[in-house]
Design a protein around this nucleic acid. Structure first.
Length: 423
RNA sequence: GGAGAGAUGGCCGAGUUGGUCGAAGGCGCACGCCUGGAAAGUGUGUAAACGUCACAAGCGUUUCAUGGGUUCGAAUCCCAUUCUCUCCGCCA
């Protein structure tokens, strides 16, 4: 969430910048500031009350020690009075604070100054494109048919044992998954990322820390008996490693990578573009996470962007990079680059990675801080990106690399698959 | 799942007949002295949040797992919850 101080001191700027995200902030900000004033007033009264009570308690203690019971009892009457008041004051204070927080979590992160205006995906800025898009006129087979043809991914079998969106990978299909995961992890660790193997289930506090809770609750699978959530991305457990942590400045940058299965209910996204591997309930992904000094986070974002591009290049996939417009960005992001690969048979761009700088938005929510040179505690910046999500990479590899003899594996992957063709 | 023990500051660890306890001591860390330089030695400092305020100092409030209760006053007493450890059961 945004820092209250910042809203208080830069009110108009906050409202203007939120407008880029098409968020009408005037009313909610006014409410926040109003509650903020109320909360501080309430705290002043409560603090004064408690201070008096504390002093009286000390005096009473002294009187008891010197045997002046009667005098002590007189003071006790006053403390009883204070106690009653304190209860009311504290209830009022807590109530205001709860209300305030409820509003604060509804305010999205401020977009970076480079974020283009726009309402939806069509207004995203295409900032880079490379690789060869297969010529029009060719009639490539879509990946779901290729999966059946070579018997590598079985959607029907997944339907039988679990349900839609839970495919079964077989033979070279399974091996390809394993190869990609290892390929991605090896690339990341060679760039200085520490490999993490996180839990696939998280508790409520973690879900709240990265912003899935309370509002996106319906997107996660919930094991109600134990009140645990299946992770929608490794970002959740990995970033939460640093919840309530105060780092030293010399710890920067913190670089973590993690492979995990990801689980998403995808409630509400039926019908369009969900065929085959395009949208699954369970899929594999390697995630990269960095925690950085606020002064360097945008440098780091560019570095992460270049890193993701380098992997796609190694896989020889045509891709483009988009700078997301205000309307298409996530709630918590300040600047996001999306990576899309071209899928030859579907003749469309598929999102395979999203690299974002959250600045201090997540850090504020989960109290991830660092001590700067003067010894002051400040919020760190968090960044993350997919590097990469497997299903759509697989879809593009299958469709783009199909030949009469089979699916050709890109050279960089052969060492991992152990074969150079799926036939 | 059953029985028992326990949860204190970055770490270890005192404190549990309730009263200057945000909390002894040690380690670690930071700075200084010592040294040709370092180690050793030595001195000082070393939690966070919120409020007041200049995002200074100072002052006030809160925090000894979490939430509630008893009391003028609780790390210290009571209740609930969570977690950890030991033993038993079950088990990849």
């Amino acid at each position: 969430m945004l820092q209250l101080n910042y809203i208080r001191e830069n009110t108009q700027e906050v409202i203007d910048r939120l407008a880029v995200k098409n968020f009408k902030a005037v009313d909610i900000i006014a409410n926040v500031l109003n509650l903020d004033t109320q909360r501080r007033d309430a705290q002043k009264l409560l603090d004064a009350n408690l201070a008096e009570a504390n002093n009286l308690a000390k005096e009473i203690g002294m009187l008891f020690k010197s045997g002046k019971q009667a005098e002590a009892n007189v003071l006790k009457e006053r403390t009883a009075e204070l106690k009653n008041q304190a209860k009311d004051l504290s209830e009022k204070h807590d109530q205001i604070e709860t209300e305030l927080n409820l509003l604060l979590v509804q305010i999205p992160n401020l977009p970076h100054s480079s974020v283009p205006l726009g309402k939806s995906a069509e207004h995203n800025q295409n900032i880079h494109q490379e690789g060869t898009i297969p010529a029009e006129g060719s009639k490539p087979i879509p990946h779901w048919d290729l999966c059946a043809k070579y018997n590598i991914i079985d959607f029907e079998l997944g339907n039988k044992i679990t349900g839609a969106g839970f495919p079964v990978y077989k033979g070279k299909g399974a091996r390809l998954q394993r190869a990609l995961i290892n390929f991605f992890l090896d690339n990341a660790t060679s760039q200085g990322y520490l490999e993490i193997q996180p839990p696939l289930m998280v508790n409520e506090a973690s879900g709240y820390g990265t912003g899935q809770l309370p509002d996106k609750e319906g997107q996660m699978y919930h094991a109600t008996v134990d009140n645990l959530y299946l992770i929608p991305t490794a970002e959740v457990p990995v970033t939460n490693i640093y919840r309530d942590v105060i780092l030293n400045e010399k710890d920067f940058p913190v670089k973590n990578t993690a492979y995990s299965a990801c689980f998403r209910r995808e409630a509400g996204s039926y019908g369009k573009d969900v065929r085959g591997l395009n949208r699954l309930h369970q899929f594999d992904k390697v995630e990269i996470v960095q925690i950085q000094h606020p002064d360097k986070s945008y440098e780091t974002l560019e570095e992460m962007k270049e890193y993701v591009a380098s992997i796609l290049r190694k896989l020889e996939l045509p891709f483009r990079i988009l700078r997301l417009c205000g309307g298409d960005m996530s709630f918590t992001s300040a600047l996001t680059y999306d990576f899309e690969v071209y899928s030859a048979a579907q003749k469309m761009w598929l999102e395979v990675s999203s690299v974002s700088n959250f600045e201090s938005y997540q850090a504020n929510r989960m109290k991830l801080r660092f001590k700067d040179k003067e010894g002051k505690t400040k919020l760190a910046h968090t960044l993350n990106g997919s590097a990469l999500a497997l299903p759509r990479i697989v879809a593009a590899l299958l469709e783009n690399n199909q030949t009469e003899d089979g699916i050709v594996i890109p050279q960089a992957l052969v060492a991992y698959t152990g074969f150079n063709i799926i036939d």
